[in-house]
Nucleic acid binder design. Structure first.
Lengths: 290, 290
DNA sequence: TCTTCTTTGTAATAAATCTTTCAGAATTCT
DNA sequence: AGAATTCTGAAAGATTTATTACAAAGAAGA
């Protein structure tokens, strides 16, 4: 990044703080589909960002251009230059870092993980698991291990907003046997177990299974021993250039599941509905500042 | 790859023989700097190709467009699609599920999030942040909010293995002011704050900053107000087809950071990990590997 | 709470861009 | 070589696009 000219994208990001609300909205809209959106007519860009035309005109002047056409001209110059340059450079994720930089290597690997993980998933299993998690006739237990309890906690936090009858069990705590007392036939356990698989988790799974609970397992590509007991298992690829494993692919599955379950239970519990509406409103408020 | 539309470039090349002299001149000019030259005003393109305006107008009509603006619109659409990283382009992630299935839509969006997030990262900032987190001369505090505390916890769990002098502060708890008592000049705070930004987190950040602490912030694309105080900020794109936001991109950054920090401190980490393995063996928490 | 300053959008104005018409040039065909 | 056809560009007209002026809304400060 030495003697290189700053791209418009860079300049916008740099000055993001000095912008007003409408201008920031616009800035994000430009960056969203950069540079395509800036190459269209001013009015289209304005509409896309939900701001008025003059706001666009003022913004490009703030960026140091005489007018919108001049701004577009530079965008086109940038584009020309980028297309001409050797491909390798913008084939990286973090532009400005060499492809050997860990940011790029790590991300490459994570994307591969996601591709493999999704490629191995049976959509029917997935849908079935979501329906099971959405079923409020039975209690839902969520179990994580030493590291995976963060994933479990993440699922729990969201499920808490979506449905009742839900418990977060920490297999690392020695209090977990108490939770099992109340388990009934048909109850559901979502269990996280990645290498190195934990004895406590396996024991817990066995006992839950013995009591007639149905098990949904999130594990890694080598599969926790729990998977013999599980009704449905999801294996994620988790290997990255690191001394530890990646939680990205399982998290992706998890978030998709949360979204699906919330879609399924839509309209159920009224209290939660209202809470959700409230959250939506707040989300919209945020949108305003986008 | 079935119903894919031909690009304008393809169409021009295909029909190159049926064109007249002036049109062929023009065609070559368009392909010369594709697609940049086609995105400028008609007159500029005409001048560039040494043909008249009407020739351009007729040519785009010959290509099947109603007019030059429509031609440009399609060029921009092409550009939009092209900018998306080829690796990210994937018809369906979960084979066996239609592309409208949430598994595929969600993953598409997450990949886009990753692309945007990485695209906006300054590798120098990233490296600097990693060095700061690896520096054991100062205490490292990790702060998360209501939802983000899972990310904070994840970082904490790994950092714990990598380095000493580390504390996980929960801004949601009302005990956090106690932690601030011991903060010294030069201590480091890694703070997680995504929308909706939490007042507690901001207050905590302000107080830490006032005591001379250095702040590293993980936030979303709209940036928590904390970023005014932060030495280094990382903004992740977090929007997915869901009522909630995605934690995938920030997690990816986090894991990359963990890996980098552990690389920086390898000698120490090794000892710590061995000691830890010993302790785990004694508690028989994990199963033995086969 | 009222004032002041900034920000933002509407509407009018100015400017440019695109399209069409038409006549001359080039090409083709007989 | 001459006529018919096709191609091309200048100029005028039509349309779209960008800019400016101004007033209302909103934020900040007293």
């Amino acid at each position: 990044m030495s003697g290189e000219t700053l791209t418009i994208s860079d300049r916008i990001q740099k000055g993001l703080d000095d912008l007003t609300r409408a201008e920031r909205q616009l800035a994000h809209s430009i960056l969203e589909n950069y540079p395509a959106s800036g190459l269209g007519p001013l009015s289209a860009l304005a509409k896309d960002a939900n701001v008025s035309g003059p706001t666009v005109a003022r913004m490009v002047q703030k960026l140091g251009f005489k007018g919108y056409p001049e701004f577009q001209a530079e965008l086109r110059e940038e584009l020309k230059a980028k297309v001409k340059n050797p491909i390798a450079k913008h084939d990286t994720w973090a532009e400005g870092a060499p492809s050997e930089h860990l940011l790029n290597r790590f991300t490459d690997e994570v994307i591969e993980n996601i591709r493999h993980t999704l490629g191995q998933i049976d959509p029917n299993d997935f849908d079935a698991a979501c329906r099971t998690c959405a079923d409020t006739n039975h209690h839902l237990y969520i179990v994580g291990g030493r590291i995976t309890h963060t994933l479990a906690e993440y699922l729990f936090l969201h499920m808490q907003l979506i449905r009742p009858k839900i418990t977060h069990v920490q297999s690392t705590s020695n209090a977990w046997p108490h939770y099992l007392l109340d388990v009934e036939d048909g109850d559901v356990f979502v269990i996280f177990d990645m290498r190195r698989y934990e004895n406590n988790t396996l024991k817990l799974a066995e006992m839950a299974h013995a009591k007639g609970a149905r098990l949904i397992l999130f594990t890694d590509q080598w599969r926790s021993p729990v998977h013999h007991l599980a009704e449905i298992s999801f294996s994620s690829r988790i290997v990255v250039p690191s001394a530890w494993d990646s939680a990205v692919s399982p998290l992706l599955l998890l978030e998709t599941m949360i979204s699906t379950v919330q879609g399924l239970t839509w309209g159920d519990t009224k209290d939660r509905m209202e809470a959700l509406e409230d959250m939506f409103d707040q989300t919209k408020l945020f949108r305003k500042f986008t």
